[in-house]
Design a protein around this nucleic acid. Structure first.
Length: 286
DNA sequence: CCGCGGACCTGGGGGC
DNA sequence: TGCCCCCAGGTCCGCG
C-alpha cells in the first residue's frame, strides 16, 4: 500500500479526523510492531492535542501539543480505519471501513468528537515512535532522507549529483531514499518507463539527457498518483486502504506479458533486481 | 564506503 | 478441500 502518494492520501484522509483534536485515550494492544513501542507510549499520547498532521517521505508525522511528534510508518501492510459519530456528515470528510481482521488492530486512538482511529497491520512491518519535535534534525528515520520529489530540492541536477559516481542499477538508485525520498517499487518502475530508461542501466550512465527525462518523469508520476488517490477517498470504505484508482493507469507495474503502451509489438517483462520485481519494456526502455 | 542478500511477518493466489 | 510454494507497495543489518 504505502509509497509516497498512498501515504499522502492517508494523511489527507486522517486530517479531518485528527487535526485539532485531543487524543482522549491511546491503546497499544501489543508491545511492538516492527520495533518495540517507546517507553510509556500510550501514556505519552493520552490527553495531548494533534495540532497538525504532516508527511515526510513515507512517514506520517503527528505534531502533538505535548511538544513531541508521533512518527508513523505503514510498512507494507499498514492501514488506518476511521470511525466517527459525525465526520461522515461533512462533504469531503473521510471514513474508512473497519479492516477485515481485527486481530491485527494494533494501535487505537480514541479522539474527542466521537472519532476512533485504528491502525491495522497484518505483517507488522510498520512502526511508530515519539521524539521531541524540536530535535527533529536528529531523528534517525528522517535524517538521511533525500528531497521530496515534488519539492524544489529534487531536480535533474540532483539526480546528476547522486548518480554520477554510482555503479548500481538505476532501479536501486531510485529506491535509495537518500537520493529522492518516497519512491517505492511501483513508482520507480513507472517513472523509468516514462523516461524510457531500462531499470538495468547503471546510475553513472544516467546524467545528461536521461536525467533530463527522469526527473520530470518522477515528478509527474508522483503528482498524478497523488491526484488519483485524492479523488477516490470516499471509495476507500470497505476497500484496500490506499490504492486510489491509479492502479488502473499503470503502464508496466504488474503487467508482465501484456503489450507495452508505447510499442505495440513488444510486451512488458519482469526481472528480479535486488530481490524485487522490475517491470519494463525491453524495446523502448534503454 | 558500497551493494547485495537475507531477515522480519502474515495472507492471498495458483498449481497439484 | 488441502497443502505447498511463491509473491507482496519497506527497511534494517551484516557480510563480502
Amino acid at each position: 500500500m504505502p509509497e509516497l502518494p498512498e501515504v499522502e492520501t492517508v494523511r489527507r484522509g486522517l486530517t479531518p479526523a485528527m487535526e485539532g483534536r485531543r487524543i482522549l485515550r491511546a491503546e497499544a494492544r501489543r508491545p511492538d510492531l516492527r520495533f518495540a513501542f517507546p517507553e510509556r507510549f500510550a501514556e505519552r499520547l493520552t490527553g495531548t492535542v494533534v495540532e497538525r498532521l504532516d508527511r515526510r517521505s513515507k512517514y506520517l508525522l503527528a505534531r502533538l501539543g505535548s511538544g513531541e511528534t508521533l512518527l508513523m510508518h505503514l510498512g507494507m501492510s499498514g492501514r488506518f480505519s476511521v470511525t466517527a459519530d459525525d465526520l461522515s456528515r461533512q462533504p469531503g470528510d473521510f471514513v474508512y471501513a473497519a479492516p477485515a481482521n481485527p486481530a491485527h488492530d494494533h494501535v487505537v486512538f480514541h479522539i474527542e468528537g466521537g472519532v476512533t482511529v485504528t491502525y491495522n497491520d497484518p505483517r507488522r512491518f510498520g512502526f511508530m515512535t515519539l521524539y521531541e519535535t524540536d530535535h527533529e534534525d536528529a531523528q534517525p528515520y528522517l535524517k538521511a532522507l533525500g528531497p521530496e520529489p515534488l519539492s524544489n530540492g529534487f531536480s535533474e541536477d540532483r539526480l546528476n549529483d547522486a548518480f554520477k559516481a554510482r555503479r548500481s542499477p538505476v532501479k536501486a538508485g531510485l529506491l535509495d531514499q537518500s537520493v529522492v525520498a518516497g519512491l517505492g517499487n511501483i513508482y520507480v518502475c513507472e517513472a523509468l518507463w516514462r523516461a524510457k530508461i531500462s531499470p538495468r542501466r547503471l546510475c553513472n550512465s544516467i546524467p545528461g539527457v536521461r536525467s533530463a527525462r527522469l526527473a520530470p518523469a518522477v515528478r509527474d508520476v508522483i503528482a498524478e498518483a497523488i491526484e488519483a488517490g485524492g479523488s477516490t477517498l470516499r471509495d476507500y470504505a470497505g476497500a484496500d486502504g490506499a490504492m486510489g484508482y491509479f492502479q488502473h493507469r499503470f503502464d508496466v507495474y504488474g503487467r508482465e506479458g501484456e503489450p507495452c503502451h508505447r510499442c505495440e509489438d513488444s510486451r512488458v517483462e519482469r526481472i528480479v533486481q535486488s530481490g524485487r520485481s522490475s517491470f519494463f519494456c525491453p524495446s523502448c526502455q534503454r
